[in-house]
């Protein structure tokens, strides 16, 4: 089902919101850098991978981002549980 708006109209509506979110993200990463100590944490790697995903081409970015932050699914879980 198509969105009834033109792409330029969507961008016009959302540009400032996107800019705000990107600035928030940039400031948060700066804050982590300025804070004492070094972060050695898988979550930082997830953030880096997310940014790579966002600048790439292709549809379903939200779905792919969700999967990036998800635990893996094991098809054999029922056997593991003895079911």
């Amino acid at each position: 089902m198509p969105i009834p708006l033109a792409a330029t109209e969507v961008l016009d509506r959302e540009f400032l919101t996107v800019r705000e979110k990107l600035l928030d993200l940039a400031a948060t990463l700066d804050r982590i850098d300025r804070a004492e100590g070094v972060v050695d944490d898988d979550r930082m790697e997830k953030i880096r991978q997310s940014l790579q995903l966002l600048i790439g081409d292709g549809p379903d970015r939200a779905q792919r981002l969700q999967r990036l932050f998800s635990l893996p699914y094991n098809e054999g879980w029922q056997a593991d549980f003895g079911l």
Partner: peptide, 18 residues
Amino acid sequence: HLEDKYLGTRMILDILRA
């Protein structure tokens, strides 16, 4: 919620499908 959602949803669907 969060990182468990995909795994948990797939498990629930597996249970119901069976």
